[in-house]
């Protein structure tokens, strides 16, 4: 088989796995059935079952990968749509996201350092709170491993969405703006879809928090890694 055929099969496989994930998530909505998790499990199982290497899979995958950069740039649009909300609650949103970003990176760094893990794991773990494409880019520019970063992002997203209501109840975080900031800062898109279930305002704030957090974490991380690690 030549590379074009392998590539086309790869791309088709990615699209089909994604559609299976969406279908399952529509049927059983839960943080554990998010399309990215389902699609990853489906594809990894197939590759392992047939003994296909990741390298072969990426012959097609690298074409889809090219869309990663533009999709990060695209996040400017939801931020722009919510500019009035951002302006109205600028101080509570910006400060909340900033503190969250700072604590997220520092706690990740210190805990990983305390555990004495390899450097490339630390660099992959630190950007876990931000949306996957940005986390992968941050990890890459620090010397981490993008797939590993994506897994930590998934754990932060699913964990944060599941544990969110308990954390909010214990610490009496009840205002919808605050919930939106918390979910968007800690659990990116998965948190945002949970926030939408609380209220429309929480969802909109969470979207703003998610994009702001991506920007702030990508600026803070290189500085903090240089200073603390």
């Amino acid at each position: 088989m030549n590379n074009i055929v392998i590539g086309v099969i790869g791309i088709l496989g990615i699209v089909i796995a994604y559609l299976i994930g969406r279908w399952l998530n529509n049927k059983f909505p839960s943080p554990f059935t998010i399309p990215i998790l389902i699609a990853t499990v489906v594809l990894v199982s197939i590759l392992l079952l047939f003994g296909i290497t990741y390298e072969t899979f990426m012959i097609g995958g690298k074409w889809v990968n090219e869309l990663l950069g533009p999709s990060v740039v695209a996040l400017a649009y939801p931020l722009y749509l919510q500019r009035k909300l951002l302006k109205k609650y600028f101080l509570p949103i910006f400060s909340g996201v900033f503190i969250g970003a700072l604590i997220g990176v520092v706690s990740g760094l210190l805990l990983a350092k305390w555990m004495n893990v390899d450097e490339f794991i630390v660099y992959s773990l630190v950007p876990k709170s931000v949306t996957t494409p940005v986390a992968m880019n941050i990890a890459e520019s620090l010397g981490g491993v993008p797939p590993l970063a994506a897994v930590f992002v998934m754990i932060a997203g699913i964990g944060g969405a599941v544990l969110g209501p308990i954390v909010f109840r214990i610490f009496r975080i009840h205002k919808s703006v605050a919930k939106g900031v918390g979910l968007g800062s800690a659990s990116h898109a998965i948190g945002t879809s949970t926030a939408m279930e609380h209220s429309q305002q929480a969802g909109a704030v969470s979207t703003v928090a998610m994009v702001l957090s991506a920007i702030i974490v990508s600026i803070l991380t290189p500085i903090l890694v240089g200073g603390l690690y």
Binding site: P92, I103, F168, I173, A186
Partner: peptide, 22 residues
């Protein structure tokens, strides 16, 4: 566990800060 712990800290600190300023 590290990722989950750090995620809870982020959620807590960011939500708390923003609620305080509200």
């Amino acid at each position: 566990i590290i990722v989950l712990l750090s995620t809870i800290l982020v959620k807590l600190s960011s939500g708390f800060t923003s609620q305080y300023l509200m």
